[in-house]
Design a protein around this nucleic acid. Structure first.
Lengths: 305, 305
DNA sequence: AGTTAGCAATAGTGATTAACTATACATCTT
DNA sequence: AAGATGTATAGTTAATCACTATTGCTAACT
C-alpha cells in the first residue's frame, strides 16, 4: 500500500470509471486497474464491484476511501510544513550570549532581528561560554555569541567584531589626566574583576600578567556583573577594565566615571558567532550577524569575513 | 514520498542513529540513509543534523516527523478497516422483498439472521419486483427476494423454495366440500386480485386464463395487500388465491375462512434470491438463504441448489 | 600528532515494482 | 450476431528500492 495507490483509489471512487480515473491520475487504465487489484489483494477486501455498466463502490470500499482521503490530506500537510519550514527565517532561533555582551548587545539586536526576520522569534539565554558551548552541542541552542578563542569539535565560528578594552575609574581619579593607560599600571590599583567562568575575567588578567598572582590588589566579585562592577567603581571601590561597548559613555552618560583607553597596543577581544557545522539555517545566522553589526556598540571594529 | 519513507523517518527520529533505525526497519543502513536524503531533497528541507557524535532532528524535522506519525496512524486505520470489513457478515445488508412475501417471511427471517449474523443488521425495503430490480442494479439494495421468472443483465438468481397456491373462500362457501379446486373454476366466482405491478397478480391470472379478459367476475384492488384481500374474503366479498405461506391456517387461525388446495397439477410460484453478479458478500447471501429455509413458511418446498 | 573506531555517505549491482502498449475478454446494446 | 464499451491480462521497459562493499569524515585514544 503506497500513497500512490491511495490516490488511485480515491480517484476511482470519485470517477467510478477506471479510464477516467486513470486519466485524472495521468496514468494508463491498466496501471490503475492493476494498482486497485493489488490494493484489494493486499487488504483482502473487495473495494469495487466492476460491471460493464459501471463501477460501484462497496460499503467497506467507501469506508476505506474515506480513510484514504484522510491519509492523503495528512500527507499533504507534510509538504505544506516543508514549504513553510523551508525559509530559514521562519521559526524560532535559540540564541546564546555570554554575560559580558548580553546587556549591551541584546537591546539593539532584538528589534533589529525582529525587523529583518519578523517570523523568527529569538529565544535567548545568557550564560558562561562553557555552558553555552554545551547547550550548543546538545542542540539546546542554535547560535551563540562568544569571545574568541573558541574551539570545539563540530562547531564553526565566525568573527564578527573586535572590541578594545578600556580602563574605568572614578571621576577625579589620579590617572584621569592621562590620555591612555599602559596595561602594566593595572597592577598598581585595586582592580575589580568578574568571577571565574567569565571569559572576560581571564582576558583582563592576560592583559595584565602582574595582576595574576592572586596576591595583588585586585578583588574578585563572584556571581557579579559588569554593571555591578561599574557601580562599585563609581563609588570609589576601585578601578576596572571593561570592553568598550560596556565602558564608553553614551550620550548623557555617567559623570561619576572616567573612561580611558589603553596605551597601544590596545588590548581587545574578538567576538564571534558559533554554531554547529551541521546547522542548516545559515540564512538565520547571516541575519544575526548583520543585526549585530548594525547595532551601535561603542568602539567596536567589524571584522570582515 | 512513500509510506515506507515516512516509516524510516519516524524510526530515525526515535533512534537518532541511522544504523539502529535501519535495523528496526529491517533494512540496511545505506537504504535508510538514501531514503532520508531523498525525502529531504523532495521536501527541500533539512530534517536531521548529522554529525559523528549523533543525529539531531531539526525543528522543522520534528514537526514533519509528528505529521508523518499522524499519516502512518491513519494509514494503519485502513488496514484495520479492511480487517473489520473482511467478514461478509459484518456491516448492514440491504434486503429487498416483494410485497406478497414480506409480511409472512420477515417476522421469521429477521430474528434468524440476527442470530446467525449479529453484526449484520438488515435494512429492508418492500416493493414491487420491478422497483426492487432497479434498486438492486443501482446498488441501493444488495439482495432481493422475488418470484421467478426474473431475468436481468448483471443479476444472478438462486431459487430458494416453491410455494403452492391456495384457494381462499369464506367459511361455508359452496366449494367447501371439495377437497381440491380445479383452476378453471376460479372463473366462476368473484375473484379478488392485487393491483397491477404485483407479480403475484399475474401469476394468478396465468393459473386461470379464463379470468384474464378483465370482463369476468374478478375485481382488482389497486394499492391493496394480501392481508386486505383476506379480510375481504372473510366478509364474503369474494374468493381469492393466495400463496400457501399467506393462506394456510396457523394454529389458532381464522375460523371465518376456508382454504383449499388446487387440483393437481398444483400451481405454484418459485421464490428466489437475486443479487448483482459482482456482489462480493456471498457469505451474507448464504446466511439469508439459510434463514429463509429455516423459517416456518406454511406449505413451501425447498429447492435444492 | 598519528591512529583507530564509529558512523554516515557514496558507488555499483541486482531484484523488485510500476509503468507503458497491445490485446484479450466480458457484457450489454443495436 | 456484431459492435461498442470497459476492464483485465500479457509482455516489456524503465524506474525504484535495497543490498554489499567501500569511502570519507569526525572525534576520541594512545
Amino acid at each position: 500500500m503506497t500513497l500512490t495507490d491511495l490516490r488511485y483509489l480515491v480517484a476511482l471512487a470519485r470517477e467510478r470509471h477506471f479510464g477516467h480515473a486513470a486519466e485524472r491520475c495521468n496514468v494508463s487504465q491498466p496501471t490503475l486497474s492493476v494498482a486497485i487489484k493489488k490494493l484489494e489483494d493486499e487488504l483482502a477486501v473487495t473495494l469495487f464491484e466492476r460491471s460493464a455498466a459501471d463501477v460501484k463502490i462497496t460499503d467497506i470500499g467507501a469506508r476505506i476511501v474515506a480513510q484514504a482521503e484522510k491519509v492523503l490530506l495528512e500527507a499533504g500537510q507534510i509538504k505544506e510544513l516543508a514549504t513553510a519550514g523551508r525559509d530559514p527565517l521562519s521559526g524560532p532561533l535559540k540564541l546564546g550570549v555570554i554575560y559580558t555582551i548580553g546587556p549591551y548587545l541584546l537591546p539593539h539586536l532584538i528589534p533589529r532581528v525582529h525587523a529583518a526576520a519578523p517570523s523568527m522569534p529569538l529565544l535567548i539565554q545568557e550564560n558562561y561560554t562553557a555552558r553555552l558551548a554545551e547547550s550548543l552541542k546538545r542542540g539546546d541552542l542554535d547560535v551563540i555569541v562568544v569571545a574568541l578563542p573558541f574551539e570545539e569539535p563540530g562547531i564553526v565560528t565566525q568573527a564578527v567584531y573586535d572590541e578594545p578594552f578600556r580602563v574605568l575609574m572614578p571621576a577625579g581619579h589620579a590617572w584621569e589626566d592621562d590620555a591612555t593607560i599602559p596595561a602594566a599600571r593595572l597592577a598598581e590599583a585595586p582592580l575589580l574583576l568578574l568571577g571565574a567562568g567569565n571569559c572576560f575575567r581571564d582576558q583582563v588578567l592576560e592583559v595584565c600578567p602582574l595582576c595574576r598572582g592572586g596576591e595583588g590588589l585586585q578583588r574578585t566579585l563572584e556571581g557579579s556583573s559588569l554593571e555591578t562592577i561599574r557601580h562599585m567603581v563609581a563609588t570609589g571601590a576601585g578601578i576596572t577594565v571593561l570592553p568598550s561597548s560596556a565602558a564608553d559613555p553614551l550620550p548623557g552618560g555617567n559623570s561619576l566615571l572616567t573612561v580611558r583607553p589603553f596605551e597601544a597596543p590596545e588590548p581587545f577581544r574578538r567576538i564571534a558567532l558559533a554554531w554547529r557545522v551541521t546547522y542548516p539555517r545559515s540564512g538565520a545566522i547571516d541575519v544575526i550577524r548583520a543585526a549585530i553589526l548594525g547595532s551601535p556598540l561603542q568602539g567596536v571594529r567589524p571584522v570582515s569575513r
